[in-house]
Amino acid sequence: MVAFYTALLSSMIVSNSVLAGYKGLCSYLGISKKSSSAFGMGVALTFVCFFSGLICWGLGFLLRELEIYDFMFTIVSILVISSLVQFTELVIKKFFPSLYKTLGIYLPLITTNCVVLGLALQVGAYTDASSFPEVLATVLGVPLGYFIVIMLFSCIQERLETSNTKYNFKGAAIGLVATAIMAIAVYGLGGVI
């Protein structure tokens, strides 16, 4: 149980996928103009990460049995992820139409989100079947960490929109500097957990 919570907190905050893992930056900068769309993106990403992480963990065992893991895992995971994103798009379009309209083209863009593939590759490296609590914690913690960061950043961006940034630093440039300051906070928590 302790291992579960340790893994959850460490994947959510200490090894945060954006601030400490540098993944998911394209959608991080692109979607966080409004906090409502950032919220929707976080929810959709949690859904995709959870299922694709578990499926890719299982497939990792299968591929290792057949000795084709080293060169086939990337291709197989990306197939699983892109199909899962299509499936999520269909589900969201049917049951949450307002969320679908908010997300627009960013929903199919989850396929090219580095967070999901990074998670699949990280989880596929677990060779021990008894590491399931850790895997479950990682698969939940990584998208929740991304969700927290994207919500914070969307609030910061909304404030930055109306402030008086100079010298063409508006938009992404000053947002990245703000991200650097957030990264300091996460870096400082490095030895705590």
Partner: peptide, 22 residues
């Protein structure tokens, strides 16, 4: 394995598209 996974996934998507059409 790649073929099998691709076929399974496309069947799942085709079925889902049929039942979740808006």
């Amino acid at each position: 394995i790649t073929f099998a996974i691709a076929i399974v996934l496309s069947i799942v998507l085709a079925v889902a598209y049929r039942y979740l059409k808006v």
